[in-house]
Design a protein around this nucleic acid. Structure first.
Length: 735
DNA sequence: TGATAGGTGTTTTTT
DNA sequence: ACACCTATCA
């Protein structure tokens, strides 16, 4: 064990050896955080703590698995509880189901089902669906749940029309969940938090069970998770959290960055360890990223450093349009490959998924293999979800969402009208769909329909009879009984990807059976429901990875390209309303900067940031303003590569400096007569005074003609802002 | 039951 | 530009 400590630097060693009491590990990007926390788990166990007294919570199953395998490699007894917040809650809610006021065989609805249920709730609440898209409403409900607002509390606090409508939906949505004996992701946290609030003995019990609590990515915890951690760790106070406020990029989903920023207030005796030596990136990459993130005001000062020397500059590339941008990247990737870098060592990041298409095309044209890290893959496949729906209904017969999914799937002649009758009857009587099925005649169905419906109920009943068998057997039995093979193409089925996916699901279940040593079907379903598809993402398949900046968190690549460094894309904003609001600094601005920071710090050796002057967005070609972030990266160890072809010059460039397109951009502002005369002398590079924001320098402008003209101005006090020229009363200053 | 035309809304998505 | 939903018809 002592030899283990030799592999750590001084702050890492402190993080590992300080075992009792509260501790905050501020772990910068690439600072060996995972190493520190896995060693810490191993150190605790090697020091005599029973493994089952150690609880380490991560945000993804992948991270939990990785931690497990790295702890295992350190040769200490296994058995530590390494899991996600959600899987911990799912497990505890099964264990303490009666105290939580639920049944242990509850179904966990995935995102799809949650949105579908929201849609249903919108209908039942009589809210105009046209103005309240289910996904959006669901997000609002989710945020409320993260802050532990019950439907009643939310209703009471609703002030605006929008909130009132959402409140109505929330009430119905929650009723539907209860009726279906189902929980959504947020419920897992919320119910657990409520249970701990209401029953102090459970907190006590858990605290005795989990004597050392560790939480990774603490900057991304929401309020419910914060309370959970607090409740479990309260009696003994052994709470070790790790994270990096500079990498908090999920505030929009309810993550509360103040959890980590104010940890020391919550736990005044906390030891704070800062890991700021970076082992990942070259000096140039660190320098640029650090320079950028320093523009954030709400942060803990922390300067990454490295012992490394050498390496190439960050490359900033200006292109004419997105096609040129993609082409440049493809060629650069080809060049790096010929220098010996493998495709899987490279990645392209973008702010929004829509930017991937052009890059894909360019890669394909250049015969460069790539893969896209999609959000959804295996468990979202229709055929997989269908089979799982059968299992869900077997376990939880009142799960109408799943029941309706499969009642005529594979087709068994139960038409839309029949289903509609069943649903109506269910609503009237409060019975579940499956409950109605055996006596459907009484529900007003015609004899032929009633017969088919009853046969469906029989089918489910016969499957349910075997639900204590190994999961693999249950699934195989179900596949046979429902005739899935025929439905997927009969003898041709083995050639279809659908049938192969089903086969994969069976393998998967078999693996669960052996790994869990006789785990129940409901355990299996809960586990499957909490698997996200990033968990499946594996590298090393000889392809360049394409993904959003968000999904890049936690990864690293020797060479990285980040596209779309343009105002409006990175930082992202949409619509004119947000632009107006942008005039005051918002927390979102800082989050966008963190997102750019996260992307940059994924790079080990090569980093290129690209910017297009024109880009097609939503079917329109728009002239783009360079991202203000590009300036914030600084100029040291940055090489600018301008591959734009100069447009025909309109006027002689002015002498003042500071623009992005120094060589190619026409700095003249006036391009038509309607432009107001007071701005006649305004140029890129001009110093101006803004009545609210003070002095600043014009950095770039958008293409739109007056009065839509927008300027990007770097204010001396407030940093970069985009303002609408016709709205601002700018005063032109002499230099 | 399926196919298709029109209307709409377009960030990110660890679970 | 494009995907996705809904309504409508064969």
């Amino acid at each position: 064990m002592d030899r283990l400590l030799d592999n750590l630097n001084e702050p890492q060693r402190q993080a590992v050896t300080h075992t009792d009491g509260a501790m905050l590990i501020l772990a910068g990007a690439g600072s060996g955080k995972t190493r520190a926390i896995t060693y810490r788990v191993a150190h605790l166990i090697a020091g005599g703590v029973a493994p089952w007294h150690v609880l380490a919570i991560t945000f993804t199953n992948k991270a939990a698995r990785e931690m497990a395998s790295r702890v295992e490699a350190l040769n200490v007894p296994s058995g530590a509880m390494l899991c996600t917040f959600h899987s911990l809650c799912a497990r505890l809610l099964r264990e303490f189901a009666d105290r939580a006021g639920i049944k242990p065989n509850y179904t966990i609805y995935d995102r799809d089902d949650q949105v579908r249920l929201t849609k249903e709730a919108i209908a039942q609440a009589g809210v105009p669906v046209a103005n309240f898209p289910p996904a959006k409403v669901h997000a609002s409900i989710g945020r409320a749940k993260n802050r532990l607002r019950t439907p009643a509390a939310f209703t009471e606090q609703a002030r605006t029309y929008h909130d009132e409508q959402v409140a109505k939906v929330y009430v119905e949505y929650q009723k539907l969940l209860v009726a279906n004996n189902a929980l959504d992701f947020d419920d897992l946290l919320l119910r657990m938090a409520f249970m701990l609030r209401d029953y102090s003995d459970i907190g006590q019990l858990l605290s005795e069970r989990y004597r050392y609590v560790m939480i990774d990515e603490y900057q991304d915890t929401n309020h419910a998770q914060y309370l959970l951690a607090r409740a479990i760790a309260k009696p003994h106070g052994n709470l070790c959290v790790t994270g990096d406020p500079d990498q908090s990029i999920y505030a929009w989903r309810g993550a509360d960055i103040s959890n980590i920023l104010e940890f020391e207030k919550d736990y005044p005796d906390a030891k704070v360890v800062v890991l700021d030596e970076n082992y990942r990136s070259t000096r140039a990459i660190l320098k640029g990223a650090s320079s950028l993130i320093a523009y954030n005001h709400h942060r803990k000062e922390k300067a990454l450093w490295t012992r490394r020397t050498g390496g190439s500059d960050i490359t900033v590339v200006y292109c004419n349009n997105e096609h040129a941008e993609a082409q440049w990247i493809a060629q650069r990737i080809a060049a790096l490959r010929s220098e010996g870098l493998a495709a899987e060592q490279m990645a392209v990041f973008y702010r929004v998924n829509s930017l991937s298409r052009v890059v894909e095309n360019a890669l394909r044209e250049n015969a460069i293999p790539y893969r896209i890290a999609r959000g959804v893959e295996f468990y979202n496949r229709k055929e997989v979800k269908d089979v799982l729906a059968y299992l869900k209904v077997i376990v939880n017969p009142v799960d109408d969402i799943s029941c309706l999914r499969i009642i005529n799937n594979p087709a068994r002649g139960i038409g839309a009208t029949t289903v509609k009758r069943l649903v109506e009857h269910s609503r009237m009587t409060g019975m579940s769909i499956l409950e109605i099925c055996p006596s459907a005649l009484a529900a007003g169905l015609k004899a032929p329909a009633a017969k088919k419906v009853a046969a469906f109920a029989d089918l489910i009943g016969s499957l349910a009879a075997g639900k204590d068998q190994p999961v693999r057997d249950i699934i195989n039995h179900a596949i046979d009984a429902i005739g899935l093979k025929d439905a997927l193409g009969g003898d041709d089925a083995p050639d279809t990807s659908a049938w192969r996916n089903v086969g994969e699901l069976v393998n998967n279940a078999a693996e669960f059976d052996s790994r869990s040593g006789g785990g129940t079907l409901e355990e299996y379903l809960h586990q499957v429901a909490l698997i996200a598809d990033v968990d499946h993402m594996e590298g090393g398949d000889g392809a360049v990875t394409l993904m959003t900046l968000h999904s890049a968190k936690g990864l690293e690549f020797p060479a990285i390209f980040i596209v779309g460094w343009e105002d409006g894309l990175l930082p992202f904003h949409r619509g004119d309303q947000t632009r107006v609001r942008q005039l005051t600094p918002t927390p979102q601005d800082e989050e966008e900067r963190r997102l750019a920071f996260v992307g940059m710090t994924r790079a080990m050796e090569h980093l290129a940031l690209t910017c297009a002057r024109k880009r097609m967005r939503r079917g329109r070609t728009e002239t783009q303003i360079a991202s203000p972030f590009l300036e914030e990266i600084g100029t040291e160890m940055v090489t600018v590569e301008d591959v734009t072809t100069a447009p025909e010059p309109r006027d002689a460039p002015s002498a003042s400096g500071g623009g992005f397109y120094d060589d190619v951009h026409d700095r003249q502002m006036i391009e038509d007569e309607s432009f107001p005369p007071e701005y006649e002398h305004l140029r890129i590079g001009s110093m101006v005074n803004h009545p609210t924001f003070g002095r600043g320098r014009v950095v770039s402008r958008g293409s739109q003609r007056w009065p839509e003209t927008r300027l990007n101005i770097h204010f001396e006090d407030l940093g970069p802002k985009t303002i609408k020229l016709s709205h601002a009363r700018l005063e032109l200053l002499e230099e």
